[in-house]
Design a protein around this nucleic acid. Structure first.
Lengths: 347, 347
DNA sequence: TTGTATGCGTTATCAC
DNA sequence: GTGATAACGCATACAA
């Protein structure tokens, strides 16, 4: 015979019933050592590698897979250290459930690409910036799957994992104000999926929650601060923006509030390039508290967010829903950390 | 009733047979507009969100999921820009198959973590450094699944996606030799899973293929070059190693061959720190050809590898095997790119 | 401790 | 273009 052996074949050659064989593999019911051995031997002799996951999943009604939905290209998502850490925490949190992570994109570009509606997932985690994931949310709710939204605009009844972006950013701004800074520029993350670089008009519509909230926090303290939007969270974007911010020596901010550590690192570099000392001539704050590779010897003044914890919280919420418990929305708080990139305003 | 509607329910309320309803959703057979409409309406009225992926998978014998097996912690894997790009290419390549990527770890630390043996995957891609993935390979072959190994030591009959590491590295070394360099140091990637930092003894056992091959390529040109192993591919590791290499002004190499761009970037920084000009005082080469965020204005002299192409090639091999065609092992070649970090030996 | 019976929800195949 | 039938491979409730 050419087809792969099934558990029934194993049971037959072992001289036991299918259910007994099944139990040997699942271990959910005690089995006598003798029969277990016989079943094992039969399996080995047939080259049976264990129960078919697909069939087992159907029977159980669980696939052991959690879908993670990104809005962007996968490569882009993992360029962001915060997302990477988050995935790490998420992976840890779902592992005890016996679940793995399936990478999914929000919009299926290819014709028959796998989507939320065709993938055998038990639950979904939406990683959200803008409202694009609205459709994904619909899809997954239609299927009655548990869903958690991380840093995004969920709807009614969907647990969310959030950060106190506004309050946290306000702390950094307060810190700068206490140091005497009055001329402050804000370097923001992208405003929307368009990711255009440039000055942010006062009346700008900001589609991405994180950007909007952090900007609001900074403006709580410095209502008139100018804002410049980067096209992404990269050191080189921060560098480019920093060049713009420091272009006019006569009209230069004494402090820059960057909305991410990577951006801040770029601004530090731009300052060096412009012959400015950090923090003697200009103070710079970041956001995230990630390890910026290559920034040494500077230590950024920043808001440390528990990125991995975000993933773990999402995983915990998923676990709760899978066990029919009430999931909790979670608000994680950032911790202000003073580094070596902020100091008193130059006199 | 409380349970979710099935396609049978839909068929019944639409007054058609289950098979007809199925066909409406799969689109694999022509259906009259009238019945299609009726089925659609019935589905909508019942809140039927489409065929259950699990059941469909069982029936089809395909889950539409490709497992990607890493040896390291997920977070660590995505810190490596080359792996990230590779995943990107892989995602692109399997999308047309209607497949998604399931992240899997080599060794299951948790008790009931999802593993190669219990995950409903159609095929597996092993991302390999050392021989640790031997076990994973066994597991997946026992299940009769198609498998591809990327940059690792596969066995007989397993298609591999490889790089011409040795030849490529030799090109860079040749380039340096032609520039007159004779005193060259090699900065290697980790030697094994232990990832210990330090000088590499002449008789060192190197478990990781990439490290060994690239080292061999460099030694083809500079047989006596000293080698120092980094603990990982990071800028800060390169910086730390660079400090060691440049520590003794009397006995300093005129060129450093780094086995990755990130390491090279760190060495550039170490050189700056030591007051050395690049490339006037010291030449530095990298490997990978990735965009190193924050290295500007330098342009590394490096070997450009088609990282995304590696993923795409793996995906293509998977696709071939899934369609019962013969998969091909693929050897990708790197391209030498001269940047601004190498120059004539100082006189 | 083991065996029997049933159904998980779908789709391929074939006949009509 | 549509419908009947038969698996897909397994795990569980329950009886023995």
């Amino acid at each position: 015979m050419t087809r792969r052996p099934t558990i029934a074949d194993v049971a037959r050659t072992a001289g036991v019933s299918p259910s007994t064989a099944s139990v040997v593999f699942s271990g959910k019911t005690p089995v006598s050592d003798a029969t277990r051995e016989r079943v094992r031997a039969a399996a080995a002799s047939l080259g049976y590698a264990g129960p078919d996951p697909l069939a087992a999943s159907l029977r159980r009604g669980r696939s052991g897979i959690v879908g993670v939905v990104f809005e962007e290209h996968l490569g882009a998502a993992f360029l962001d250290p915060v997302k990477t850490l988050m995935m790490d925490g998420l992976a840890d949190a779902v592992a005890p459930l016996g679940a793995g992570l399936l990478l999914l994109r929000d919009e299926a570009l290819t014709e028959n690409a796998p989507t939320l509606s065709t993938a055998p997932i038990d639950a979904a985690v939406l990683i959200g910036c803008s409202g694009l994931l609205r459709d994904s949310l619909e899809l997954v709710r239609a299927r009655g799957l548990p869903v958690v939204v991380v840093e995004g605009d969920a709807g009614d009844g969907v647990p969310r994992i959030l950060l106190d972006n506004r309050e946290a950013q306000r702390q950094a701004a307060d810190h700068l104000r206490r140091l005497g800074h009055r001329s402050v520029a804000i370097l923001t993350l992208p405003l929307d999926a368009g990711r255009r670089r440039g000055w942010v008009p006062a009346d700008a519509e900001i589609a991405i929650d994180v950007t909007r909230e952090r900007l609001a926090g900074a403006r709580d303290v410095f209502p008139d601060a100018v804002a410049y939007a980067a096209a992404g969270s990269f050191i080189d974007e921060g560098l480019a923006a920093g060049r713009v911010l420091f272009a006019d020596p006569a009209n230069r901010p004494t402090a820059v509030i960057a909305q991410s550590d990577l951006l801040a690192a770029g601004v530090v570099r731009a300052a060096e390039e412009a012959g400015l000392r950090v923090p003697a001539d200009v103070s710079i704050t970041g956001f995230d508290g990630v390890q910026v590779d290559g920034l040494a010897p500077y230590e950024l003044t920043t808001l440390v967010q528990a990125a991995a914890e975000k993933g773990r919280a999402a995983g915990a919420a998923i676990a709760a829903m899978l066990e029919d418990r009430e999931p909790a929305s979670i608000l994680l708080t950032c911790t202000f950390r003073e580094g070596s990139t902020t100091g008193p305003v130059p006199s």
